[in-house]
Simulated assay, not measured.
Amino acid sequence: MRLRPFLPVVLFAFFLTISSMAKAQIGVRAGFNAYNVISRNGNGNELYNGSRLNPGFHVGVTYDYLLSNNFYIQPAALFTTKGYRIKDIQEYSSVESYLTPYYVEVPVNFLYAPKLGKGRLLLGAGPYVAYGLGGRGEYYGKTMVDGVVTRNDQSADLQFLSDTDDLKTGKWAYGKTWDYGVQILEGYEFNERLSFQVNAQLGLANIHPDSKGVKSTSKIKNIGFGVSVGYIF
């Protein structure tokens, strides 16, 4: 369905609608991400040996509304990058690759925000759902034979897919389109406007695609953390 990429945004709009009568504030948020994956094959062994954190970013809008004294609910709509990096350096060869998928994501955090000094302490947790939009993959390979160095550099757009048979020519597979999970956050809000927070996120969805209609026994889950700055209007 063509509307499926916009479902997280539709969910965010729903929260805006049901909270229209509440004391609410719109804000913006942007910051730095670092993501990796938890990967296991059917035998429980690591699927992507040596995967590392892949740096990225997130940006979007938030909507805070008061539930009761010091308790808030905060849905948001974010554009965010995730993925992972692999780096393998040997004596006569090296490989480094980056897979950076793009998602539109709707987290819904439940916040406890007691007064602390001139501002508020922010403690929160909640679920998220995300829809993959695409992304970019890069591969840098180098080998040395008899003193001669040969390079093999490649790049391609990433494709989200449920089955590897659906992979289009010239694209690299990342994983299934939908991701969901949980996150926690901690931060501080200055003068009810400017805020700073750190968050950690754990994907619960297995995004490893199937093959030829056969359900995969391997598992891949997104995991990462972020640091961001927000401003409430």
Rank of each mutant, 00 (worst) to 15 (best):
residue 153 D to P: 00
residue 134 G to W: 07
residue 86 I to L: 14
residue 138 E to H: 08
residue 71 F to R: 01
residue 156 A to E: 11
residue 113 A to S: 15
residue 77 A to N: 00
residue 125 A to L: 13
residue 165 D to M: 09
residue 171 K to F: 05
residue 143 T to Y: 11
residue 130 A to K: 05
residue 172 W to T: 09
residue 147 G to V: 07
residue 109 N to H: 11
residue 137 G to D: 06
residue 166 D to G: 07
residue 124 G to F: 01
residue 148 V to E: 15
residue 103 Y to L: 05
residue 159 Q to V: 02
residue 79 F to V: 12
residue 143 T to Q: 13
residue 91 E to K: 14
residue 166 D to Y: 09
residue 109 N to I: 10
residue 173 A to Y: 09
residue 110 F to S: 03
residue 176 K to D: 07
residue 88 D to V: 02
residue 114 P to G: 07
residue 91 E to S: 15
residue 118 K to T: 12
residue 164 T to E: 12
residue 82 K to Y: 00
residue 146 D to L: 12
residue 160 F to E: 05
residue 107 P to S: 08
residue 91 E to Y: 12
residue 168 K to L: 13
residue 90 Q to F: 11
residue 93 S to Y: 12
residue 144 M to H: 00
residue 86 I to Q: 13
residue 177 T to Q: 14
residue 145 V to N: 13
residue 111 L to W: 06
residue 166 D to W: 02
residue 73 I to V: 15
residue 95 V to N: 12
residue 129 V to R: 02
residue 182 V to I: 15
residue 122 L to I: 13
residue 168 K to Q: 13
residue 174 Y to M: 08
residue 108 V to N: 05
residue 98 Y to I: 06
residue 72 Y to E: 04
residue 85 R to K: 15
residue 184 I to G: 15
residue 146 D to M: 11
residue 162 S to A: 14
residue 72 Y to D: 01
residue 185 L to D: 06
residue 87 K to T: 15
residue 107 P to D: 09
residue 176 K to L: 09
residue 94 S to Y: 08
residue 116 L to F: 14
residue 120 R to D: 10
residue 152 N to W: 06
residue 141 G to L: 00
residue 143 T to C: 00
residue 105 E to P: 01
residue 172 W to F: 07
residue 94 S to R: 14
residue 101 P to W: 11
residue 106 V to F: 06
residue 170 G to S: 04
residue 170 G to D: 03
residue 145 V to L: 13
residue 182 V to G: 13
residue 106 V to S: 11
residue 92 Y to V: 08
residue 78 L to C: 01
residue 102 Y to F: 12
residue 105 E to Y: 01
residue 82 K to Q: 08
residue 78 L to K: 00
residue 165 D to F: 06
residue 92 Y to L: 12
residue 142 K to L: 10
residue 79 F to D: 01
residue 186 E to M: 15
residue 158 L to N: 03
residue 151 R to L: 14
residue 167 L to E: 07
residue 167 L to N: 04
residue 84 Y to W: 11
residue 95 V to K: 11
residue 134 G to V: 01
residue 156 A to H: 04
residue 157 D to E: 14
residue 149 V to K: 14
residue 82 K to A: 03
residue 129 V to K: 03
residue 93 S to P: 00
residue 179 D to Y: 07
residue 93 S to K: 11
residue 155 S to T: 05
residue 84 Y to P: 00
residue 78 L to R: 00
residue 156 A to W: 02
residue 160 F to R: 07
residue 142 K to H: 02
residue 129 V to Y: 09
residue 161 L to M: 08
residue 91 E to R: 14
residue 179 D to G: 02
residue 134 G to D: 05
residue 157 D to V: 04
residue 135 G to M: 07
residue 183 Q to Y: 10
residue 99 L to A: 10
residue 160 F to S: 06
residue 147 G to C: 07
residue 114 P to T: 08
residue 178 W to E: 09
residue 84 Y to N: 09
residue 126 G to P: 06
residue 82 K to S: 01
residue 182 V to F: 15
residue 120 R to A: 08
residue 123 L to C: 04
residue 137 G to N: 05
residue 93 S to R: 13
residue 132 G to V: 06
residue 111 L to I: 15
residue 156 A to K: 10
residue 75 P to R: 04
residue 160 F to H: 03
residue 138 E to W: 04
residue 149 V to R: 14
residue 168 K to T: 08
residue 152 N to R: 10
residue 125 A to P: 03
residue 101 P to A: 05
residue 132 G to D: 03
residue 169 T to N: 12
residue 143 T to L: 06
residue 186 E to D: 10
residue 77 A to P: 01
residue 170 G to H: 05
residue 83 G to D: 06
residue 97 S to Y: 06
residue 161 L to T: 05
residue 94 S to H: 02
residue 159 Q to H: 01
